[in-house]
Amino acid sequence: MRRFLLQRAIRAVLTLAILSVVIFALARATGDPLTLILPPEASAEDRANVSQELGLDRPWVVQYGRFIGHVLVGDFGISLYHRQPVNELIRDRLPNSMRLAGFAMAVAILLAFPLGVLAAARKDTLFDRGDQVIAILGQSVPTFWLGVVLIETVASRLQWFPPGDIGGLDHYILPGFTLGWFVVAGMMRLLRSGMIEVLDAEYVKLARIKGVIERRVIWQHALKNALIPVVTFMGMYFAILVANAIVVETVFAWPGMGRLAYEAITTRDFPVIQAVVLVAALIVTVANLAIDALYVVIDPRIRHAG
């Protein structure tokens, strides 16, 4: 078991290392940040000055060496665009994104669980089909469109909730729902098929024979076991949320990591692009590791396999 977790951890570190090289190269391939920092009228001399000041005139290898050296001590450098330490930017944004992702995850779970379980209990009925349609709807319209429609109707016309921007709990409702519904389909499917399988298993049949009432069979005996795959894939859903946050944060003017990533890419802010991708990957990786560990705890079979 310890070996299993150790292996996972080593792989996670390797993953991040590969990623750092890829993202470093990609960030530099997106073009010259000087063109953005300097006004159109800037002279060649101005360009050389600023390039030197920012260290952009050094060879890539040197830049990477410096970058990775600093990253290892937790320093992502200075944003070319904001002229502010990247750490500060991330410190400002990361909690906003985490809270939004957490809220969205809660929305997703609240939607997916009843839908998934009830669909499994009434497999292949019209009810099941209807459930699936509701679940899949969330990922069948472009996220930004759903967001804009919600803002126009719920925020602008009805004025029930604020149209985004950071604030109290009510500010989370529209972006959280927009972001959360997107992963409902995946989660619901997993639960549904998990439940169907479990409901078919011998011990559930046994419970039924023993006369346990059906509602208890479903919600207690079966759900507990069907949860395992859902937990396993929590990391993946989380990754999906992180990715979709770029769109949702733009629509709802949410000052999070997704927005930061988008701005950084369009402004060729190397240090920020690198940092955001690495931090996002780190979070997903750590989440996966935690889930692996949790998984070992809840599922005894892994211990034998490891």
Partner: peptide, 21 residues
């Protein structure tokens, strides 16, 4: 390992970087 590394990149982010590049 390669697969893991690829999966840890948010898909929209990479697509965006490539499209901009």
């Amino acid at each position: 390992q390669l697969t893991d590394a690829t999966l840890s990149i948010p898909i929209i982010l990479l697509a965006l970087i490539l499209a901009v590049t």
